[in-house]
Design a protein around this nucleic acid. Structure first.
Lengths: 227, 227
DNA sequence: CACCGATATGGAGAAGTTTCCGTTTGTCTC
DNA sequence: GAGACAAACGGAAACTTCTCCATATCGGTG
C-alpha cells in the first residue's frame, strides 16, 4: 500500500490521480446499476479523461474490473491470513478449509455482478490473477496438510472451479440454489475427499434433504435432434 | 438429423445451403490456425455471404462456435448412451462415472481451441447448452445412484466445473499438468466423495507420486501489494 | 405458370473495444 | 530555474460485434 515496491519505477503523480478518478467513476457507474454493459468509453467520459488513459492504466476491461474487485480481495486475504479462526490461523486444516470455502461462497454470491463482468471480459484472467494465486496456494497448503498423499495442487483447482461466476449465477438463478445449499454441497464434497478414514463431525444442517431439484432435464434416453 | 421436428417450420433450401457454407468456412478458418481471433466478418467473407446471414443463422459468436462443437458432442452423447461399458450402459454407476470423467478430460483437452473460443464468446453459454444439460443430467443420475443421500445436482455441477476450458488450458499450459494427471486427480476426488465407507478398487496407476508441481506460487505469507 | 406471403439476404451503420501516436506534463539534474 | 527525457495524455482511427431493413428469393397455390 504505502511502501513502494523496490524495482517498480514508481507511478507519477498525475497518473495516480487519474487512476483514482477512473476507479471512482467506474465504481459510481457500477453502483448506479450500469453494471453489465459498462463501457470503458463511458467510464472515460465520466472520469473526464481520454480512453487511451484508461487503457494505459488498466490494460483492458478485465483489468479495470479486477482493480475494482481488489479491495474486497485484500480484505478477504487479511481475514484468511490474520483473522480469527476457523478462517484465520489457529484452527485445524480441515476446519480452515471448510471455513475458507464457505467464506468464498458468500464472497462469490455477494460480488456476483462484478465477478460476472470480470469473467465475461476475460475468462482466463481469473486463473492468472493474484487473487486466484492466493486462493490456490492457500487451498493447496491445507489440502496437503490434510492428505499428504493427494495431488493437492489439482484438488485445489477442482475445489475452486465451482466458484466460476457464471456457474454460481446459474445455480442461484436457474437452479434456485441458496448459498446455504451450496455450502452444504461443498461440505459433502470435502467430507469424503479429504478424510481418508476419519469420521467427520456431522455438518451443522447435514440432515437437510435436497429441496426441489428445479425439476428440469431428466432426459438421457431422449434422442432429440440439435437446436 | 433427417427427421424434421414437429413444430419446426422447416428450413428453406437456400438457408440450409448457407448454413453449411458458413460452417465449412468457419471450420476451415479454425483449422487454418485463426482459431482465437476468429471474426464473424471474416467468416462471412470466407463463406461468401453477408454478415447478416451469419447472425440470422447462428445468433451470435457463441452460437456459431457451439454449432461447430455440436458434432463431437453428438458422438460423445451416443458413446455414453449406447456405447460399450464402462462409459456406456452396463457397468456399475461408479465405473461409469469414472469413465465419464476420463472421457471428458480427453474431450476437453482435445477440443481445447474451440472450447476456449466458445467460453470467451460467452462464459454463461456453457451452462445453458444442450451439451451441459446432458452432462449434468447424466452425472446427477450416476451420483444419485451411488449415494442417495447426497445433493447429486450440486455435486454434478461441482464435478463438471473443473472442465472450464480456461482452467483446463491453464492447467495444461501454466501448471504443466498432463491429461493423465488430471484423470488421476478426478479419481482422488471421486474416491472419497462418492464412496461413504466402501473401499474403492485401487486406481490403475494410483501409486504415482505427483511430479513437479511446476514449483510456483508458494507465498501465502507474503504481503505483496497489488499489480 | 404467374402470383404471393413468408423467409432469407447482404451490407450499411450503431456501439464498443483496443491500438497508435503526436503532444503535453511531471520529475530529475545541473 | 532551465533543460532533458521518460511517462502520461487524449482522441482519432482500425476493428469487432451485432442490429436493421429495403430488397431478392423460395416454394406452395389457384
Amino acid at each position: 500500500m504505502l511502501t513502494a515496491m523496490s524495482a517498480a519505477p514508481a507511478e507519477r503523480a498525475d497518473a495516480a490521480r487519474n487512476r483514482q478518478k477512473i476507479l471512482a467513476a467506474a465504481a459510481r457507474l457500477v453502483a448506479a446499476g450500469a453494471a453489465e454493459r459498462l463501457s470503458l468509453d463511458e467510464v472515460a467520459r465520466a472520469a473526464d479523461v481520454g480512453v487511451g488513459t484508461v487503457y494505459r492504466r488498466f490494460g483492458d476491461r478485465a483489468g479495470l474490473v479486477f482493480a475494482l474487485l481488489d479491495e474486497q480481495h485484500q480484505l478477504f486475504r487479511t481475514r484468511v491470513l490474520e483473522g480469527p479462526p476457523p478462517l484465520g490461523p489457529g484452527a485445524d486444516a480441515g476446519d480452515r478449509l471448510r471455513a475458507f470455502l464457505h467464506a468464498l461462497v458468500d464472497l462469490s454470491v455477494g460480488q456476483r455482478e462484478l465477478l460476472l463482468l470480470a469473467e465475461s471480459s476475460s475468462p482466463p484472467a481469473r486463473f492468472v490473477s493474484d487473487s486466484y494465486a492466493f486462493q490456490h496456494a492457500h487451498a493447496t497448503r491445507l489440502i496437503a496438510e490434510l492428505c499428504p498423499d493427494a495431488d493437492a495442487a489439482f484438488l485445489a483447482d477442482a475445489l475452486l472451479a465451482p466458484f466460476a461466476p457464471s456457474l454460481i449465477d446459474h445455480q442461484c438463478r436457474a437452479r434456485g440454489f441458496s448459498p446455504e445449499r451450496i455450502k452444504t454441497g461443498f461440505d459433502q464434497l470435502l467430507r469424503g475427499t479429504l478424510q481418508p478414514e476419519a469420521a467427520v463431525p456431522p455438518v451443522e444442517q447435514a440432515s437437510r434433504r435436497l429441496p426441489a431439484d428445479d425439476g428440469s432435464v431428466a432426459d438421457d434416453g431422449c434422442a432429440n435432434a440439435r437446436r
